[in-house]
Write a protein that binds this DNA or RNA. Structure first.
Length: 954
DNA sequence: CTGCTTGAGCGTTCTTTGAGGGAT
DNA sequence: GATCCCTCTTTGAACGCTCAAGCA
């Protein structure tokens, strides 16, 4: 009885009604039910739910096969049941939604569900439900909603569907993003990118605020000032200032005060604590105040370029973030509950030589000896305090600082959020991946390692346990990993130009908030641990920007596909790049240093800036060209640098076969530059290239296209299936420039079809010209000059491809003659065309006037009420005509209702209106009232009512 | 958990050179 | 009878890219 269409209508039109009814037990759905042929929706739902419950009771354990061997009824009834499930799902979601307003209805006050998210889920579901087949319906257990147990009817009406996660995952319909969705995602990505770029420029601008800088300088102890006096700045020299900054400024739980960024920065400075963004900005401001060439660097964490990516994330990850671009960590209003957990753990274990560690001793000393820093934190909530403690402890690499203890300490205050656990696990993983074994010296014993191993697993297990607990309560089908993602992630830092590094100078990564110097290699791992896509790392200075992703990204091939079209991105950054290089190169400090370091006083500022910029570009280029070989084969499919033969497509080949750069799963890896594209002879011809004599095809592939009937017969007759069934391909190295036969004796060399294929100008036979003019072939024909139609391509018309011609090809010597002839011909043609049009116009006028006269005569003879309509129509035509001649700008409606005439006499106007309205007036054109304009051959006839008509006389 | 293989879905690219019937 | 002009059935198959599932 009911069809899918029915279901959709209900979903779309009465979802809320269903929800209300389900929750409150009201009769809100009766209107919907009345649309059905028999039974209300409620009844149908009840019946279906009952069936479902029976089915589950009878056939539990055969979820997958339920559809096939439905024990209840026919396929039709199966559809019916599924449909009710759909309705019930909506009911449940709406329950949740409604529950946000009236918790008592649900009785589950602990349920924290983002309404927006639910709406999106509903929308997604509605969208998808339209596309789903019957096979896509999911089964689910249906416990009675206890919240409504007071209502006797609600046992059935208020139904909660318990989603079987495993089942739904297994049977999740494969739905791929459409082109439209992809386009939308790309647009959102671009807009988001621009927004975040603009935001970062604002931050960068705020870092230049002289007041902020002066305030920071006033706080600075004398010993730190030395850094500004160093002639050849090195990363190590930055250590004291970074240490001081780290001790005095803290990342705190953000509050959305809604301040503008500059005032928020001032506020953060005053309180010596702020968001990660603010603290990073303050560090940049401090460095700039010390006349260090400094950039503000940010990971532009924007919405995904792919439509599905965000959806997947949203369904499984951070609910707060998942709301598209607005949930991003680079919010205009900072997100709540940001935890100041940091990368401190990472640095503590990194013993890399070029990393300047901040001594934990110094920190603890500072903690103990300077109570001011604690005083400033007195306003903080307990959690950030504890987290700071934890972070500090971890920094000191103390045995007591491990995550397990953090867990335990946290545990003592109640259950830790699953998100925090997840994050810690991720951080642990990143830590172990990036700095495995580096802690040995501090930890001192294997026991510690064992401990740490245990600790890695411990929160993980715990998290799973919590997951189980939460899923068992099954109050919400949505992941509760809220806030787990991108917390404490490295999103902002500074880059300080150190002229004393690397002989030529170097931009050094400085994350003052986390007390990390020169930790550029750790950014990727840390970002990965925090599930941040490291797609765009942009450095800002002087309101300009430069993409420095290459410096922080070791696996470019992984992110290249996640970045926007490079041409667009380059165009966006083009105007900013100049500003940035201008700002980072023009300081006195730099000039002095460069002069000293280069030891060449002849260098001026501009050249040094250019040199610095190009050196950095070279550095990043070098990184691009020296990317390590991927270890998995898939990565070679579209790798920009490397290729393996296996992933080439049918028109590609490795030539020459060398050098072999390495091996991946036994496959030799070649440079991508060795990949050559092959084409057929005909295809090369289009590029004005021909295969050299005696060259054999480098590759032969099967022609899989089906031959037409005639061709098949022909092929069979001549036994040429093999020769025709293969496609011979040639490489570029087998080619030479196209050498077409020269035109001789005014004869154009043609192909077998008697034409010239004009794929490009290069395809033109020597001694000929292409005249791409319409109808020019007739001139050549008339002048008896040899020519060939110029075919410029194909187009599909009426289901088949047809050649497209554009003019002709003739020998050069006839070009002028033909063009002259063409000009004459065109002149004649234009004249003839004009003549024809005039004749046509005369003919049409004659027809029109004859018609009018005839109608008028008939009207005079036989006119009565019946003809009034025609008469009115003629009248209107006349009136409009007269209006047009007057050039009145009034609109049509007005001209029809209140026709204007040549004369402005109001009385006549009124008379005309009256006459027109009553259709009783008959115009009379007296000869003495007529005038004739000889110049234009126009005769103007006037009626005594004021109506005029102009007639063209020939 | 990661990487590989395989299969499927979807979008893009490539293909490619009339015939018949009515009017003039 | 020759020639011109208009309309008809407005492709569809292969390939490449991407993703998900299954497996090791």
């Amino acid at each position: 009885m009911r069809t899918r269409h029915n279901s959709k209508t209900q979903n779309a039109s009465s979802g809320n009604e269903n929800a209300m009814r389900a929750v409150t037990g009201s009769e809100g759905g009766s209107r919907v039910g009345s649309r059905k042929e028999s039974g209300t929706l409620a009844e149908t739902s009840r019946e279906a739910v009952g069936k479902l419950l029976r089915r589950r009771a009878n056939a539990r354990g055969s979820k997958g096969s339920e559809k096939k061997d439905n024990p209840v009824g026919t396929a039709k009834s199966g559809t019916k049941v599924h449909e009710n499930q759909v309705l019930d799902k909506r009911v449940t979601w709406n329950d949740v939604d409604a529950g946000a307003c009236s918790k008592d209805a649900i009785g589950n006050s602990s349920m924290e569900v983002d309404e927006e998210r639910i709406e999106r889920l509903q929308d997604n579901f509605l969208d998808k439900s339209e596309e789903m087949d019957d096979s896509d319906w999911e089964d689910g257990s249906i416990p009675v909603n206890h919240s409504t147990e007071n209502d006797p009817e609600s046992h059935i009406k208020g139904v909660t569907i318990e989603f079987d996660a495993e089942d739904s995952a297994r049977r999740k319909p494969v739905r791929r993003a459409t082109a439209e969705e992809k386009e939308l995602a790309e647009l959102v990505h671009k807009v988001h990118l621009l927004c975040v770029l603009a935001r970062s420029r604002i931050i960068d601008g705020a870092c230049d605020d002289p007041l902020i800088q002066a305030s920071l300088l006033s706080l600075l102890p004398a010993y730190v000032f030395k850094v500004s006096e160093v002639s050849k700045l090195t990363a190590r020299a930055l250590s004291p200032i970074v240490s001081w900054f780290h001790d005095n400024f803290h990342v705190r739980n953000s509050d959305s005060t809604g301040r503008s960024f500059p005032s928020a920065l001032a506020y953060a400075l005053e309180n010596r604590e702020g968001t990660a963004e603010e603290i990073a900005a303050l560090s940049v401001a401090l460095f700039r105040a010390l006349k260090l060439t400094t950039r503000f660097v940010s990971i532009l964490d924007v919405s995904s370029l792919k439509p599905e990516a965000d959806k997947n994330e949203s369904s499984s990850l951070d609910g707060g973030r998942s709301g598209g671009i607005f949930g991003s960590p680079t919010l205009m209003v900072t997100r709540p509950k940001e935890v100041a957990l940091s990368l401190d753990k990472l640095i503590s274990c990194d013993k890399k030589e070029n990393v300047c560690e901040i001594s934990s001793r110094g920190l603890s000393k500072c903690k103990n000896s300077s109570p001011t820093s604690y005083n400033t934190q007195s306003k903080k909530s307990a959690i950030p305090d504890e987290l700071n403690d934890r972070a500090s402890d971890s920094l000191s690499c103390d045995a007591h600082c491990d995550t397990s203890e953090a867990c335990h300490s946290k545990e003592s205050q109640g259950l830790k959020r699953k998100g925090d656990l997840e994050f810690e696990t991720q951080l642990q993983m990143a830590l172990s991946a990036t700095a495995a074994g580096n802690c040995k010296s501090n930890l001192g014993s294997d026991e510690k390692n064992l401990n740490s191993d245990e600790n890695v697993s411990s929160p993980f297990k715990r998290m799973k346990k919590i997951e189980n607990i939460e899923s068992s309560t099954s109050h919400e089908g949505i992941s509760t990993a809220v806030g787990s993602r991108k917390v404490g992630s490295p999103l902002y830092w500074a880059e300080v130009y150190c002229s004393g590094e690397n002989f030529t100078g170097k931009w050094v990564h400085v994350d003052a908030a986390n007390a990390i110097i020169d930790g550029e290699q750790k950014v990727e791992a840390a970002a990965s641990a925090c599930k941040i896509a490291l797609r765009y790392v942009v450095a800002f200075a002087g309101h300009g920007a430069k993409d420095v992703t290459r410096r922080y990204c070791m696996k470019w091939h992984k992110i290249a596909s996640k970045r926007v079209n490079p041409a667009w991105w380059d165009a966006v950054l083009a105007p900013l790049r100049g500003l940035e290089s201008g700002a980072t190169g023009g300081t006195m400090h730099m000039e002095k240093n460069h002069g000293n370091s280069a030891g060449n006083s002849g260098h001026n500022v501009e050249s040094s800036v250019a040199a610095r910029s190009s050196l950095e570009d070279m550095e990043m280029e070098t990184r691009a060209l020296t990317e390590p070989l991927p270890t998995n084969q898939q990565a070679y499919r579209n790798h920009q640098l490397y290729a393996i033969e296996r992933w080439l497509n049918k028109y590609q080949i490795i030539h020459p076969k060398g050098p072999v750069l390495g091996f991946c799963s036994g496959h030799p890896v070649y440079p991508r530059t060795c990949v050559q594209t092959l084409k057929t002879k005909e295809r090369w011809l289009r590029e004005a290239l021909q295969v050299k004599v005696n060259e054999l095809p480098v590759k032969v592939i099967k022609n899989s296209t089906k031959l037409k009937k005639g061709q098949v017969y022909e092929a069979e007759d001549h036994d040429e299936v093999d020769s025709k069934g293969n496609i011979e391909l040639y490489g570029k190295w087998q080619l030479e420039p196209l050498c077409l036969p020269h035109a001789v004796n005014g004869i154009v060399p043609k192909n077998e079809r008697g034409q010239v294929d004009m794929w490009s100008e290069k395809c033109l036979p020597p001694g000929t010209v292409h005249l791409g003019l319409p109808r020019i072939f007739s001139v050549a024909k008339r002048l008896e000059i040899d020519y060939a139609p110029a075919m410029v391509g194909f187009e599909f018309r009426n289901g088949r491809s047809t050649p497209v011609f554009d003019g002709i090809v003739v020998c050069s010597e006839f070009k002028d003659i033909i063009l002259e002839g063409y000009a004459e011909e065109e002149e004649k043609r234009v004249a003839a065309e004009k003549k024809r049009k005039e004749a046509q116009a005369i003919s049409r006028w004659f027809q029109l006037l004859s018609s009018i006269v005839t109608r008028q005569r008939l009207n005079n003879c036989y006119g009565d009420g019946s003809s009034s309509q025609t008469s009115r129509a003629i009248q209107n035509i006349k009136n409009n005509e007269s209006n047009l001649r007057v050039g009145d700008s009034q609109d049509d409606k007005q001209s029809q209702e209140c026709p204007k005439v040549d004369t402005r006499d109001a009385k006549l106007d009124a008379a005309l209106v009256a006459a027109t309205a009553e259709h009783e007036h008959e115009h009379v054109y007296l000869i003495e009232d007529q005038s004739f304009d000889e110049e234009n051959s126009v005769r103007t006839k006037r009626c005594h009512c004021g109506f005029t008509i102009q007639v063209e006389e020939f």
